[in-house]
Write a protein that binds this DNA or RNA. Structure first.
Lengths: 331, 331
DNA sequence: TTGTATGCGTTATCAT
DNA sequence: ATGATAACGCATACAA
């Protein structure tokens, strides 16, 4: 049975040594206000040199609060997520919470299973770019506080990296450079960001009066980008906006292989700014704020945990175009 | 008090509906062998349509097993770690375990605190590139199973990405290209990998009869690499091995800013192979196997969890040189 | 201000 | 093969 932990002191040990009841020890930590200051001090002192730490599991069983947040991402290998995860973990830590991390490989079923597996242990969920159905998300939200990142479901708190502005600016930028036929290279079809970016390209193109051609896509990876290069060439465009930097980067490589120069022959814009200026040529891209998004999501969640009937919020993080070296006048 | 979870069915509900005792329900899940097959079936059926799931917290309190693994990394933003984390989470999931993730920002104190915070909730720890003292690590290992990644402490299970071979090959490769004075650009001083690589460069240089100059370093980042470029130039070498790809990449940028050509003027070798061929020019580097390391670490941990007195193991993952485009004959 | 008693959901020991 | 029952460590009504 019982503790895998060799001799972890419990509330009972402390109580005995301090000559008080277990309830008093409990209060010395959880509700010191009701105790006489000197009892609090004495109990804590004894607890300290005994090395006593309240057992979170027992607390959880009693209070229903586990001190655990779960964060689910579709692909931790995508450089968009690590900064977000890091920031989220940091904020959680500040709030005294630990972070459970789940990676779904873009698989909605796996995500659903994982969420089920964790519902009884996590106090709340951050679902990043969730691929689950609205229904599944709502079901979860009925049982635990949920904050979405880059997924827009009414009635549920969410933080959205709003790339509309940035993408529009990108299209305008390309138009000003004389491009009249611009492609959008899609990412994962279930991705909210993909939908938003696609639409933004389409709209901006319409408004400005340039032609937009939508190229299909499934995953975001360097390899996928390389493979997309021929398709892009066939589409006869002189410029393209890619779903994200990783994809854009792959495309650049694929184009280079075929002797096509960027930005000489084709201009390219990425999204998310995860590569900074770290590739050559430095990629023109639409900024994101992945870390901010992660932090904001956890803050929202913590707030909701502290005040269960605080209303759901929809926070938008805006973006802008960062012009570097992969865009140039149309040939 | 009690469950934050609205109406989660418990073992008691199932027992009542099935007309059996709670003990029987428990056994239907945890020890079905001792029950009559038809009772197992009946109980499970009822549990299923009630939506009953055993409460892990209660299980943990009773058995001491939480179903949680903790993984601590120094810097999740470093591309070396995400694949490792992803693999670790995957293996854990397969074993029915969830993963707690901690990011320490290379801060030993923060790591220690975090570990303390989690000892009572996690069944075991994977400490990746731990910055804690041997003593602290041993203390933890006395309370919970621990597996180290890229940290070599006797008596504690560890998986080491052994870059000695790869680095030696790199130095030989450079020597063959005619380089006679080679720099090693250090990374974090507390990093085991850094120590190993430094030593490997030194030894290989000695053996081959070329000169090795050790350049100081603290952190591994693109920016740090850029800043290291002048130092590298002053050192009068024609080739360098950098602590990792991120650093090497920064150096390339810094060199480029100063009009120094890679590999024309200076040859450069990275470590870890996290950039694949994704930068220009593609980086010659020493392979690592971050994902394998993460998977192996979790496997070791799981094994140890299942058989508490299995001996500690020291698994070595070997590396090799991947020649791409940043190395060339000495000018 | 502090103590007593009970419950949280499960596993495990001991009966039957 | 199954049932009673006592832990597991803590929080909280209720008493005092």
């Amino acid at each position: 049975m019982s503790p895998s932990d060799p001799a972890a002191p419990t509330i009972t040990n402390v109580a005995a040594l301090a000559g008080v009841s277990r309830a008093t020890v409990s209060r010395a930590f959880g509700n010191p206000g009701v105790l006489r200051p000197d009892t609090v001090a004495r109990v804590r002192a004894i607890a300290a040199d005994l090395g006593y730490v309240p057992n979170p599991t027992a607390q959880a069983l009693s209070t229903g609060r586990h001190g655990l947040l779960a964060m689910i991402v579709p692909d931790i290998a995508n450089p968009f997520f690590p900064p977000m995860i890091g920031a989220a973990q940091g904020r959680a830590e500040t709030a005294g919470l630990a972070l459970l991390l789940g990676n779904t490989d873009e698989d909605p079923a796996r995500e659903h299973t994982m969420v089920g597996r964790l519902t009884l242990q996590a106090d709340g969920f951050v679902l990043a770019a969730s691929r689950m159905s609205q229904r599944q998300i709502r079901d979860l939200a009925a049982r635990r506080p949920v904050v979405l990142v880059n997924r827009d479901v009414a009635g549920i708190s969410r933080v959205l990296v709003d790339s509309a502005d940035g993408v529009r600016a990108a299209v305008e930028h390309l138009a000003e450079l004389g491009h009249t036929r611009i492609a959008y290279l899609a990412g994962p079809s279930r991705s909210w960001a993909n939908g938003q970016r696609k639409k933004a390209v389409k709209r901006a193109a319409e408004r400005i009066g340039v032609e937009a051609v939508m190229l299909p896509g499934q995953v975001s990876s360097y390899e996928a980008g390389m493979k997309a290069a021929p398709t892009l060439l066939e589409s006869q465009v002189t410029a393209a906006v890619a779903f994200d930097d990783v994809l854009a980067h792959g495309v650049m490589a694929g184009l280079a292989q075929r002797g096509v120069s960027v930005p000489g022959d084709i201009s390219l814009v990425g999204c998310d700014d995860v590569l900074q200026a770290q590739v050559y040529p430095p990629l023109t891209t639409v900024s994101a704020h992945a870390a901010d998004a992660g932090a904001a999501a956890v803050d929202l969640l913590v707030q909701r945990l502290e005040n269960p009937d605080s209303p759901d919020r929809r926070v938008l993080l805006d973006t802008s175009l960062i012009i570097r070296a992969t865009t140039a006048p149309a040939p």
